[in-house]
């Protein structure tokens, strides 16, 4: 709901920017550093506006935060609340519990991404803003993949430690670091060599809204997710669970 509302507000502002040529001039006047950091490309075109306003930071980060909160609760939540004793007394393995909860998280995150895409894609034309479905899908998919990767990182920390707070903290910090690495890479030459390490860069660095889907980059994230999931299952399975 929050994400959808935000999108509607952003979309409704677009016509006034679109018709106002002075906006373009304002941004041309901005220093190079600023434009790169905030991903200001072309504010007055549809994809440019969405890219800057929604997909530069807000949408992927909101999606990721939502997924991280969920992911940190997957393994550590029931342990923290004590209900894991009752749950595991049933004929279900720890692995199955984690896998099923993780599957729900993936579906939930994709569902939220679909809501985002639907809102932007259907309401965009009403505000004379048109983005191709392909670009939009690519951006939403990239954002969802980013969110799922860090949610799975939160799951892994929670599964190994049993602490929701730690899981949340570590995953959020990594997500922000990954964004900063990608955003600052054009400015800091040292970052340029390692920017490929940033899941953010893999998911969103190529401006999917305008350049479309890049399966190779998404599959890098897929590998990361699979590895993290395996670590989660392994560490959760071998550990004593707290009372």
């Amino acid at each position: 709901m929050g994400i959808a509302t935000y999108c509607v507000v952003m979309l409704s502002v677009f016509p006034s920017i679109h018709d106002n040529k002075s906006f373009a001039k304002i941004f041309e006047a901005y220093p190079e550093v600023f434009r790169k950091l905030f991903n200001v490309t072309d504010f007055t075109t549809g994809p440019g506006y969405l890219g800057a306003e929604i997909f530069s930071v807000i949408a992927p980060m909101l999606l990721a935060l939502f997924a991280i909160l969920w992911g940190s609760d997957l393994a550590a939540g029931e342990e923290d609340r004590g209900t894991i004793d009752l749950l595991l007394a049933n004929p279900v393995s720890r692995r199955r519990v984690v896998l099923e909860k993780w599957s729900a998280l993936v579906l939930g995150t994709l569902w939220l991404g679909a809501v985002l895409e639907g809102t932007l894609g259907l309401l965009g034309p009403l505000f004379s803003l048109s983005v191709g479905w392909a670009g939009l899908s690519a951006a939403v998919l990239g954002s969802s993949a980013f969110a799922i990767a860090f949610a799975t990182a939160a799951l892994a920390v929670g599964a190994a430690s049993g602490s929701r707070g730690l899981a949340r903290g570590v995953a959020t910090a990594l997500a922000v670091a990954s964004y900063l690495l990608s955003a600052l890479a054009p400015l800091v030459s040292a970052f340029q060599r390692v920017v490929w390490l940033s899941p953010w860069d893999q998911a969103l660095g190529h401006q999917p809204l305008t350049t479309g889907l890049r399966p190779a980059n998404l599959s890098v994230l897929g590998v990361v997710v699979v590895v993290l999931l395996a670590v989660s299952l392994w560490s959760y399975d071998r550990r004593d669970l707290a009372t």
């Binding site: 004590g82 004793d85 009752l86 595991l88 007394a89 279900v92 393995s93 009372t243």
Partner: peptide, 19 residues
């Protein structure tokens, strides 16, 4: 064999936490 064993048992935890 936890899953097979748990199929045949019922458990009440000492510190009962419910949903």
């Amino acid at each position: 064999d936890a899953v097979a064993a748990h199929r045949r048992l019922g458990y009440l935890p000492g510190e009962l936490a419910l949903y």
